[in-house]
Design a protein around this nucleic acid. Sequence first.
DNA 1: CAGTATCCTTGCGGATACTG
DNA 2: CAGTATCCGCAAGGATACTG
Lengths: 133, 133
Amino acid sequence: MESEREALLQFSSQFCEELSNDDEGLKREILAHAGNRWSLGVLHILGTNGPLRYGELRRYLTGVTQRMLTRTLRHLERDGLISRYDYEEKLRRVVYAITDMGKEMLLRMLPLWSWIITSANYFRETRAKYDSD
Amino acid sequence: MESEREALLQFSSQFCEELSNDDEGLKREILAHAGNRWSLGVLHILGTNGPLRYGELRRYLTGVTQRMLTRTLRHLERDGLISRYDYEEKLRRVVYAITDMGKEMLLRMLPLWSWIITSANYFRETRAKYDSD
DNA sequence: CAGTATCCTTGCGGATACTG
DNA sequence: CAGTATCCGCAAGGATACTG
């Protein structure tokens, strides 16, 4: 039904009116994890493969530099979406895991993510047409 | 049920394995609309208030500069999420509207957005604790 | 092994002034 | 009215080298 979509859009008004209040910045920052280069990948890998060490994560995320992996992990940890545990051993060993909050966020991002993937051809064509004008 | 969440996470694997293919960049760019300063606001306003002129949009988005509004509109138009119509009149008049694709994206972003809003307090506290260490 | 430190380029977001 | 043009600071993302 078309009206069910309209209803959802209307329902959303209450949230988007909050776009203009003080901590609108905080919300956008959390949301920005969705657009960041490695955040979604880290969340997903930790969500499906369980806790992993730094080096293991690196191998999953082909192409990530140490700098960017560390940055991403710190950001996600700061927002409580992953946890970090440093076994203080001589041979260093640090393990990262997704938190319950991280799983909640991941579950709410996946529908959007999968929709974008299935729509990739549409976007490619639309952009090509736009750029050629 | 806890297992239903696990199932969803597993289900998602097929998508995130695509993280490493060629147009992964395109997908993240589309997703980046979620984290951009004005994109979600524009989509929402056009989605609930119908087609609007440039100046009207400006009044809805308190604080937006002309430069950023124009940039945001161009990006959204390039991805086919909004449409632009220029009535070629002497008194200039340009109207923007959300497209069907834009509505689809908006509908898939709102659950994530609303979840973040209701979790804002959690994030504030988590960050405060992280920053104090 | 799990990071830092340094340098670089690109794009975001904003301020201000100007225009068909 | 609906934009451009120009300048700025800042953060993302990456390359490369180094370290406890």
